[in-house]
Design a protein around this nucleic acid. Structure first.
Length: 605
RNA sequence: GUUCCCGUAGCUCAGUUGGAUAGAGCACCGGAUUUCUAAUCCGGCGGUCCUAGGUUCGAGUCCUAGCGGGAACGCCA
């Protein structure tokens, strides 16, 4: 099956998966930094509001502008029971409640009761936690070491690793890292598309013009050429598809020569894939491709038979799911060979047996929603209670701006080319910058350019909600301005440079009254929000929630940083220490968050 | 045809369980650099939140019906 992955589908637009496919039980209130400030406000309000503290806390929101405070309690719902106008209620409550601790002031603003947090107290609470947390800042203990499998990347053997594989690869990788950071035991699975009729196609073509010397020389490029040639030939002579099916049947039945060639194709492909994964810094815990499940499929089919779930339809064997509005699911072709779904049923069971997951994620394009719905339904009918733990994490497919991608026509932009081009641009930018500023070129120019170029590509894919289609646009990928990976890296690099200049160890023993300004407060609160972004990101299977949090942090810091009146390093030792602690916290948060996204942070830029 | 996804500024997108004046980036225009890295920052320009009903004290958000774009729907994966 050329894997689950949009082989042919690359040419089509994607359907997005279902909303809420990842909704699971809402976890208890997070034990993160921000909740430390919400809770006391809720406790202070509760008596005057005459509601339980939990309910009050749940109602708390954030005012639209910082001048209005940091926390808001809306009084609309009270208006009914009290038969008073919301502003009057807000005024009354504000008059009764006294500000204590980290809450500096409580004022009624229209229909809201707003709390102003004490910048000194908040900074004193958050910044030491960031410093002490270090690389662990933001980490959570949600998972308690429980396993979550993440099926991602999963390219088809015998085709170049194209830009269209980027999405599953980077989203899945980010989710693996995020799960790990949240205390889960993630299992990254590369379910290689190394089985299926496509190999019949390749073998059919090989009979006509296969050349091992050529394969040796040109590797995967040659395999792609065969694949494209096959599709061309089939357009003229549709009977070739039957030849291909017969070839795959032979492969499945153990034909020696077919097996030998298959193994060769697989190896040539893997060598190519490993190069790309190396560039991205991605490894997998499990590289079992579809072929591995070959032996497990008879058991699946037997059980389906025993449970009376199978029926015959036009020669093929199917599970009828019409009553669930899921159509009919084919599990065995008329010629007896198996299908995508059959193998996924076997692999799902294998993963449960092997890893005992509490969640099993499939980072696969949204066009395959029906497939996963069918798979889950069949597992449910097979009385596997864990069918509910399987979650399709769909994403929109990538298209070109001016044309459609068609793997069948060999119309692939190799991911390697994209990365090389962005790396080259990063290098140019570094060199140009060094010239303009009269600085020396960094000794580790190659490493820097690599991190920046790759970071740009990865972040570009992770910054938006994954269900959206992505239009591949060179201009966009090659832009390092604005909301981009290089922007975040750059912000961290500037701070690293200050830390080096600072020279002294960074301490949490500072005068937090020096960090009392509104800019500092907003920034500290943004830092405090990072764990929550991680929690929500995992819950929704959505790395962009982390991306957003990082952009917010970098943007708030950059605003402070560019203010001429606001210098981190100065003659005032106490002020320098305080601001250095804040700046360091920003760098730490950016490094940690970018790490979760699978983006390396250069030491300088 | 049926089902699913999407529709917010010229472009790309944010927008917690429904809450205050719908926010960013890009592009464009104008500023900021003797001073911690200008891959930056500040200001300006820019909106029938697809349409019409409905629910609600309150709708970009929820419901219904349409419109527009995309996807899936048996021997591909």
């Amino acid at each position: 099956m050329a894997a689950r992955r949009h082989a042919a589908a690359a040419a089509r637009r994607v359907a997005r998966g279902r909303r809420g496919s990842l909704t699971c039980a809402v976890p208890p209130p997070p034990d993160d930094e921000m909740s430390r400030f919400r809770r006391p406000f809720a406790e202070a309000l509760a008596p005057a509001v005459e509601l339980p503290v939990d309910e009050v806390e749940a109602l708390l929101g954030t005012p639209p502008r910082p001048e209005m405070g940091q926390l808001a309690f809306p009084c609309f719902q009270l208006a009914k029971t009290r038969k008073q106008a919301p502003p009057a209620i807000a005024a009354e409550i504000a008059g009764k409640v006294r500000a204590t601790g980290a809450i500096q002031d409580i004022v009624a603003t229209g229909p809201y009761v707003n709390a102003f947090l004490d910048g000194r107290a908040v900074a004193g609470d958050v910044l030491p936690a960031v410093l002490e947390g270090g690389e662990a800042y933001g980490r959570l203990d949600l998972g308690k070491g429980r396993a979550v499998t993440v099926d991602f990347s999963s390219p088809n053997i015998a085709k170049s690793f194209g830009i269209h594989h980027l999405r599953s690869t980077v989203i899945g990788h980010a989710l693996v890292n995020m799960l790990e950071a949240a205390g889960y035991r993630p299992v990254g699975i590369n379910h290689l598309g190394d089985w299926g009729t496509q190999f019949g196609q390749l073998l059919a073509m090989w009979d006509v013009c296969g050349d091992e010397a050529e394969l040796e020389k040109r590797g995967i490029e040659y395999l792609l050429e065969l694949y494209v040639d096959f599709n061309k030939a089939r357009d003229v002579n549709p009977a070739l598809q039957d030849v291909a099916r017969a070839k795959f049947k032979a492969l499945e039945d153990g034909d020696a020569e077919a097996r030998r060639l298959w193994a060769l194709f697989r190896k040539v492909s893997l060598d190519e894939f490993e190069r790309v994964y190396g560039m991205l810094g991605i490894t997998f815990d499990d590289m079992r491709g579809e072929s591995f499940y070959e032996d497990l499929m008879p058991a699946v089919l037997n059980e389906l038979e025993e449970r009376g779930l199978l029926s015959e339809s036009e020669g093929a064997t199917v599970v009828d799911l019409e009553e669930y509005e899921l159509g009919t699911a084919l599990v065995r072709k008329a010629d007896g060979s198996t299908l995508y779904l059959t193998r996924d049923l076997a692999s799902a069971q294998f993963r449960k047996d092997t890893y005992d997951f509490v969640r099993s994620l499939y980072v696969v394009g949204g066009s395959q929603s029906l497939h996963f719905d069918q798979m889950k339904k069949v597992l449910e009918l097979m009385e596997r209670p864990w069918h509910a733990d399987i979650e399709h994490v769909p994403f929109g497919l990538m298209r070109f701006k001016d044309r459609k991608m068609s793997t069948r026509k060999g119309d692939i932009v190799p991911l390697k080319d994209v990365l090389e081009r962005t790396i080259a641009l990063a290098r140019e930018t570094i060199v140009k910058g060094a010239e303009e500023k009269g600085r020396e070129l960094p000794a580790d120019l190659d490493e820097l350019a690599h991190r920046i170029g790759v970071g740009a590509v990865v972040f570009n894919d992770l910054k938006n909600r994954r269900v959206r289609d992505v239009v591949f646009d060179w201009d966009e990928v090659l832009s390092f301005d604005g909301e981009t990976g290089p922007y975040l890296q750059y912000t961290a690099a500037r701070i690293a440079s200050m830390e080096a200049r600072h020279g002294r160890p960074i301490t949490a023993d500072v005068d937090f009254a020096l960090l009392d300004g509104p800019g500092e407060l907003a920034l500290v609160l943004a830092l405090a929000d990072l764990p929550e972004a991680l929690r929500r990101g995992i819950e929704a299977g959505e790395p962009s929630l982390v991306s957003d949090a990082l952009l917010e942090i970098a943007s708030l810091f950059s605003t402070l940083y560019s203010n001429k009146e606001w210098k981190v390093l100065s003659d005032d030792a106490a002020l320098t220490d305080a601001r250095m602690l804040l700046a360091h916290g920003v760098r730490q948060a950016l490094c940690n968050g970018l790490g979760w996204l699978g983006i390396a942070v250069p030491a300088r830029m």
